[in-house]
């Protein structure tokens, strides 16, 4: 994918992965993430190559099946990301470590991003195969609900609250939401249980090359998501640090208020 050309740049060659270097780079890259990013680019390029060129069109869906190579990996990433959010939230509540809170938030954001991919590619895929962009299909419905639910989660993360309160509320929501994913999924599936038909797995008979392409897409999206997650986490981390520097300044200003009062002098 051309997009990741904006890859991490110029981390110091000598530093170890994920460890502070002697010279701290003015960005969120490090050697490890750079390698990860290169891997993501290569894999994505391969996915493009196989998905658009090398793999054969399907019998009934023709070329529309190529959307599957984005759709399936996106689903996987979405679910994994939301799982990460839930786990991160639980660990945050348990250990009280901001680290996990930030991980949860970063994962949710990435999950929402990929969830939007799922929805768009899914409905684009649906038009040629089903004849409509939207169908009240179990998966479609539940995925949409999921999407909205995590938009809500992100909204909570953006609330104007004391950071700890906000983190705690978000963590509760992160855990509950994931449980909800399951309920929504099953209830909707039950609801539409009668005509399950038209989702991907039904018209299988994938040939080897298609299967390989799906696998390739999966790998590339996972690597990409991991890379994004690390960077997003670091951005949150930096934001927190910046806030704390601001806090030091605010403290100093607050303490300086003293002299303006005149009370101290009068009391003597």
């Amino acid at each position: 994918m051309s997009t990741t050309a904006a890859e991490p740049t110029g981390a110091e060659p000598g530093d170890k992965p994920l460890v502070a270097s002697a010279v701290n780079p003015p960005h969120t890259g490090s050697v490890a993430t750079r390698r990860l990013g290169v891997a993501a680019i290569v894999l994505l390029a391969l996915t493009l190559l196989f998905g658009l060129v090398l793999s054969p069109p399907e019998v009934s869906q023709r070329d529309a099946v190529r959307l599957m190579y984005l759709h399936l990996p996106s689903i996987a990433v979405t679910y994994l990301a939301f799982l990460t959010t839930a786990v991160g939230s639980a660990l945050y509540l348990r250990k009280g470590s901001v680290y996990w809170d930030l991980v949860a938030g970063a994962a949710a954001e990435i999950g929402v991003l990929f969830c939007s991919f799922v929805l768009v590619t899914g409905s684009l895929w649906g038009k040629p195969t089903w004849g409509v962009y939207w169908q009240w299909d179990a998966r479609l419905t539940s995925t949409t609900v999921l999407f909205v639910m995590y938009l809500g989660y992100l909204a909570v993360r953006r609330l104007e609250l004391p950071p700890e309160v906000r983190s705690r509320r978000a963590a509760v929501l992160g855990i509950v939401s994931f449980g909800n994913v399951i309920i929504v999924h099953y209830s909707v599936k039950w609801w539409r249980g009668l005509h399950q038909g038209q989702t991907f797995g039904a018209d299988t008979k994938m040939d080897g090359l298609m299967l390989f392409t799906v696998f390739l897409g999966l790998m590339s999206f996972l690597v990409l998501a991991a890379w994004l997650l690390i960077h997003r986490f670091r951005v949150s981390w930096l934001a927190r640090e910046v806030e704390q520097v601001g806090l030091a300044q605010a403290l100093a200003e607050r303490r300086a208020e003293t002299d303006a009062t005149g009370l101290v002098g009068r009391s003597r």
Binding site: L251, R254, R255, A256, E257, T261, L263, V264, S267
Partner: peptide, 19 residues
């Protein structure tokens, strides 16, 4: 006892009851 608070800090305490 009187304690003077200003600028988010305790500036001065007067154990004898200020004034």
């Amino acid at each position: 006892r009187t304690v003077i608070v200003a600028g988010g800090q305790v500036q001065e305490t007067d154990p004898a009851g200020l004034g």
